[in-house]
Design a protein around this nucleic acid. Structure first.
Length: 471
RNA sequence: GUGAGAUUGGUGAAGUGGUUAUCACUCGAGUUUGUGGUACUCGCGUCAUGGGUUCAAUUCCCAUAUCUCACCCCA
């Protein structure tokens, strides 16, 4: 009877707690301890490479004035019009959670007078960004970017340096990538090209043949017309003029130089005339980094239309690479600094999505060593031993050993269980008996062999077995 | 934002319009309290949430939420 009563009470309590539980927000992700080994690896690689190439770390606030993004990324861009977390704060200010890194970095460059530093200023940035997208695998509303910006360098070498750095980043993480690259020219020659493109679609009633989406694209983002998978659009796109043929001399030379440097460095790339980026500030070089393998998921969509006769597609599309899986992207933005209120300053940069990189690392099952494992476990029996061993823990810690313990557990059994789960090589055991004798037990966890050693000689004995971490 | 599918203990899976919802692993508590990795016992689920149909719903229907897939777009 009393037992039943008790059980009922417990159930009730549990129910209430469940009802009150608040789960995480849509599209947000928790990073659990096991996950952090991937993060540490990626962040370490990003930091190392940035440092090696002379990029210095910078941080900017998560919150900025909404206007910063409206002005830089473009009022018509998708990021600003439909993906931004924006709100009005208690001051009646219009605020936004940053959807990307570049505007904040450019703002910092201007606000802190970084044009007085030796140019170019090369910056490394890492942190969370926010976009109110519909979540999917590899697409979250909060995600992290590794971002590099080179501000103040007009040379095509700067573009090539960024692209090669990004390439090495992936290659050293054992991820095969290919860079999709294109030039969208400058304000002058792009405008001329868009007129040509528009005229092309006006000719011979092509516009009418376009699919529904492409009719919208014609007004909004005509360059995207070239990227459609619908049969009639594809046919027309194949004949349409390409932007690379319309570049002015300066832009063409710049682009050619970038490609030459990439060739020289053996960086694989794919000239992709359909590549256009969604942000308004880009000019000349634009690029995206795509994984090389074709994986099941997004490929299915291409299969569906492939029972129809296939048409010549640009190389990249032929490979069937899903656009969603772009691991990174960037380009040149020579007008942005001036547009945002600074001096006229050329610049380029890119961002890489860390979660997507981690997804790829997991996909490839690249083995990572678990850093959590300790060298040695300290077990105690009785309160006196506990006090003594708590001090010993500090000694070992300061000597550089990765010691583990479960001081809150009383039984030796449960402590050895912990030691086992932690995968330590040795366990030191201290009880009443050992305290009286001035000794301590050292147990080899693999063989189960125990030795009694002089308490004073612990460090020497541990060093004999595990080596000296200081060396 | 548009369209499609999924949702069963911590994880991965079974299963059924009707008495105690099955299995594996994990986790926690034990199996003479000074000895782990093997064994045994026990515990952990109102079968996503809210409605409806029904004598009866975890199972059928609707809505919502979340995840996944495609589109859009990006990282």
């Amino acid at each position: 009877m009393p037992k039943m009563f008790k059980k009922k009470e417990e159930e009730k309590v549990f129910k209430v707690r469940r009802g009150k539980f608040v789960s995480r927000l849509r599209g947000m992700k928790d990073i659990l301890p096991d996950e952090y080994k991937y993060w540490n690896l990626v962040i370490k690689k990003a930091s190392e490479l940035s440092k090696a190439y002379g990029f210095r770390r910078i941080g900017t606030p998560v919150l900025e004035n909404l206007e910063l993004f409206e002005r830089s990324s473009g009022r018509s861009s998708d990021i600003v019009t439909k993906e931004m977390f924006s709100f009005i704060d208690k001051n009646n200010d219009k605020i936004a959670l940053r959807p990307e890194a570049t505007p904040g970095i450019v703002r910092t460059y201007i606000e802190h007078g970084m044009f007085n530093l030796p140019q170019p200023v090369k910056l490394f940035w890492l942190g969370p960004v926010f976009r109110h997208d519909k979540p999917q695998a590899g697409r979250f509303r909060q995600f992290s970017q590794f971002d590099l910006e080179n501000i103040g360098d007009p040379s095509p070498v700067a573009d090539a340096e960024l692209i090669s750095l990004a390439y090495y980043f992936f290659r050293e993480l054992q991820i095969d990538v290919i860079t999709q690259i294109n030039s969208i020219g400058c304000a002058v020659c792009r405008k001329e090209y868009l007129v040509k493109l528009e005229n092309f679609y006006k000719e011979r009633g092509r516009r009418v043949k376009l699919c529904h989406d492409c009719k919208k694209r014609l007004a909004k983002n005509p360059l995207r017309l070239l990227d459609c998978k619908e049969k009639p659009c594809l046919e027309m796109a194949a004949e349409a003029p390409q932007i690379v043929d319309s570049l002015c001399d300066d832009c063409r030379n710049h682009f050619i130089k970038v490609l030459e440097y990439l060739d020289e460095l053996d960086i694989p790339y794919n000239l992709n005339p359909t590549l256009v980026r969604g942000l308004d500030y880009y000019n000349r070089t634009v690029f995206e980094i795509w994984p090389v393998e074709v994986e099941a998921s997004a490929d299915a969509g291409l299969d569906k239309i492939s029972d129809q006769p296939t048409f010549a597609k640009p190389d990249a599309v032929k490979e069937g690479l899903p656009r969603q899986s772009a691991l990174g992207g960037g380009g040149r933005y020579d007008g942005l600094v001036e547009y945002m209120g600074g001096r006229p300053t050329p610049a380029c940069g890119f961002g890489i999505g860390i979660e997507r990189v981690i997804l790829k690392i997991k996909e490839k099952n690249i083995p990572l060593k678990d850093e959590e494992k300790g060298d040695i476990f300290l077990a105690q029996l009785g309160d006196q031993a506990r006090r003594k061993i708590m001090k010993l823990f500090e000694v070992l810690r300061k000597a550089g050993y990765s010691a583990r313990q479960a001081f809150t557990k009383d039984s030796l059994k449960s402590q050895l269980e912990m030691a086992n789960k932690m995968g330590v090589k040795y366990t030191l055991i201290l009880g009443q008996k050992e305290i009286m004798d001035g000794t301590i037990l050292i147990r080899d966890m693999e063989s189960g062999i125990q030795e009694i050693i002089d308490y004073k000689k612990i460090l020497a004995e541990v060093e004999k077995r595990l080596g000296n971490p200081a060396k």
